[in-house]
Amino acid sequence: MKNFIKITFILTAVFMFSGCSFDLNKLKESSVGGFLVSDGNENKWVAKNYYDEKANISGVDILTMAVDPINPDVVYLGSKDNGIFVSDDGGNDWDKIMEFLPTKTYGIAINPFESQTIYATGVLGKRGKIFRTDDGGKSWLEIYSEPADGTIVISLAINKTNPQVVFAGTSGGMIIKTSDGGSTWENSYTGKSPITKIVFDEINENVIYFLAFKEGVLTTKNEGNDFEFIKIDDNNKEERKKRENFSPSTIQSIVADPGNEGVAYFGTEKGMFRFSNFGNNIEEVEIIGSSKEFPIYAIAVNPKNSSEIVYAAAQAIYKTTDGGKQWSVFQLDTKKNVSILKYNGGQPSKIYAGLREY
């Protein structure tokens, strides 16, 4: 019975990360979707989906987003069915990177010192692969492939101080690492749950968080030499009270606090939680109560002000500038959910959002 449950779980997870293709030219801008921008101090959002005179990207399901660290007006979107889109003007106009052949793109990572070097995961046929471009997307080199169909690469992250180091996670529960830009790879961890998110600590690059689907958060403090699941001391009554609504299996999103070492925010199916001291302490963030009824798939923290946080639940985006005491709310006219939120690093008053169906 245990083996049957394990196999069923993996197959279900892989199915969730798959999708069917469709013709971009048939897309109609009938509702809010695709890509949104908030530009200014107020929590107001505008759709930015222009592709050409006949088509737009409002119907594209966005799985991942990467913002160029050198020119943050350059934004890359990885989609469920249409590969990678790029905008060089903060989302006003979009182009599809035709040279990138895979249709499904779950992870994109950009070299912070040389932003023409980009890593992206992709699915060709039914096999997961990783690609690298050194010319901004004009040509792509396959640098990793799964040995057989079925397993796909669903998460990707780059070390910001040593961009030769890249971590990737698979739907089969493996974490792999390259230390030479993809020329060679090594197995860092093998588990039983898909690795859906990888997040580096913003201050200490040796600390990395890995979200294991429906299991919890793995962390390493030595860049992948050792791993352990974040656990809370149940014998501490004060800590137990702070986390009474917290369950590791319900975590949906992770973001590291850019201003504080060892601090991260986790979005769950029942609220948001702030982990500090590298996961040894936890407290629930006071968010709008009704939003706790929906999974929090996306969180972002202002890179210049850790008291400013945005998160999304269902069809609403929430923003605080005082660490969570008060929140502004923006309602979206859509049936989709916000899958990812990113700040423009050079202009933090500008925030990007990608939407998808779950």
Rank of each mutant, 00 (worst) to 15 (best):
T12D: 08
T12E: 11
F15Q: 12
M16V: 11
S18G: 11
F22Y: 15
N25E: 15
S30N: 15
V32M: 14
V37D: 00
K44R: 12
W45D: 00
K48A: 06
K54C: 02
L63T: 06
M65P: 06
V67H: 00
V67M: 01
D68K: 02
P69L: 02
D73P: 00
V74D: 05
L77S: 03
G83H: 08
I84T: 11
V86E: 09
G91D: 02
W94P: 10
K96E: 05
I97W: 03
P102I: 08
P102H: 08
T105M: 02
F113V: 09
E114V: 08
E114T: 08
Q116D: 15
L124V: 07
G125Q: 13
K126S: 14
G128K: 10
F131N: 11
T133F: 08
K138P: 09
S139R: 14
E142A: 05
I143F: 02
T151Q: 13
I152G: 06
L156I: 12
L156S: 11
A157P: 11
I158F: 11
N162T: 14
V166S: 12
S171F: 06
K177I: 00
S179N: 14
T190M: 10
K192I: 13
T196Q: 08
I198W: 04
I203G: 08
N204C: 06
E205A: 06
L211P: 11
T220R: 03
N222T: 13
N222M: 03
F227T: 12
F229M: 04
I230P: 05
I232L: 13
I232V: 10
D234E: 14
E238P: 03
R240I: 00
K241N: 14
K242T: 12
Q252G: 03
I254T: 06
V255D: 07
D257L: 02
P258N: 12
E261Y: 01
G262D: 08
G267A: 04
G267E: 03
T268G: 10
G271T: 07
G271K: 09
F278I: 08
N280Q: 11
N280I: 02
E286L: 08
E293R: 09
F294L: 11
P303G: 14
N305A: 08
T321W: 02
T321D: 05
K325N: 10
V329K: 15
L332Y: 02
K336C: 01
L341Q: 01
